Amino acid sequence: SPEVQIAILTEQINNLNEHLRVHKKDHHSRRGLLKMVGKRRRLLAYLRNKDVARYREIVEKLG
């Protein structure tokens, strides 16, 4: 489901952010981070168009 995919991506994004705080010059990982953020944004847009209630619920849960 989109909610699960968004939750997994959010966790991976948070982990990668911590990694990049330590390894500032790791541009390869930064590119992966940007791809993940874009994918999460697309999934959220899809969910917002399909079911606003589910969209609001996941945004509330994940912050």
Score class of each variant (00 low, 15 high):
L34R: 10
V37M: 13
E3Q: 03
E3M: 05
N14V: 05
I58Y: 04
P2D: 05
L44I: 04
R48L: 09
I8K: 11
K50F: 13
H23T: 04
K35F: 09
K35Y: 11
P2A: 14
D26W: 03
V52T: 08
V22F: 11
L9Y: 03
S29E: 04
G63T: 12
K25R: 10
L34A: 10
E57V: 05
L16Q: 02
A7D: 05
E60D: 08
V22Q: 11
K61P: 02
K39W: 08
I6P: 00
R42H: 07
K61L: 11
K25S: 13
G63E: 11
G32E: 15
G32P: 04
R48Y: 14
E60H: 12
H27C: 11
R40G: 02
L44T: 00
I13S: 00
E60Y: 06
R21A: 09
L34M: 11
N15S: 12
L9R: 01
R42C: 11
V52D: 07
Y46G: 06
E60P: 02
I13F: 02
R56H: 12
L44V: 01
E3P: 03
S1I: 06
L43R: 00
R30P: 02
K50A: 10
L62E: 01
G63A: 13
N17Y: 15
Q5L: 13
K50M: 14
P2V: 15
V37G: 01
I6H: 01
L44D: 00
L34Q: 09
E57N: 07
R30E: 04
D26N: 04
V4D: 14
L47W: 02
I58P: 00
R54E: 04
L44A: 01
E57K: 07
H23M: 04
K39S: 05
N14R: 09
G38V: 14
D51V: 02
G63L: 15
T10Q: 03
R54V: 08
H27R: 09
H28P: 06
K24S: 11
K61H: 10
N17F: 15
M36D: 01
I13L: 02
A53K: 14
R56K: 11
H23K: 05
R56F: 10
S1V: 06
K61G: 10
H19L: 07
E3T: 04
K24E: 09
R54C: 07
K24Y: 09
L20W: 03
V52M: 12
D51A: 03
V37Y: 13
A45T: 10
G63M: 14
V59G: 02
E57R: 05
N15C: 14
I58C: 06
R30N: 05
R56E: 11
R21D: 03
R41S: 11
R31H: 08
I13M: 02
R42A: 11
H19W: 15
G38P: 00
N49I: 13
H28D: 13
R40L: 13
K61E: 07
S29T: 08
R48N: 02
L47M: 04
K24C: 12
D51I: 04
G32I: 15
K39M: 12
R54D: 04
E60A: 13
E60F: 07
R48F: 13
R54F: 04
H28G: 09
Y46S: 08
E11C: 13
L44N: 00
E57D: 08
N14Q: 07
M36C: 05
N14L: 08
K25D: 15
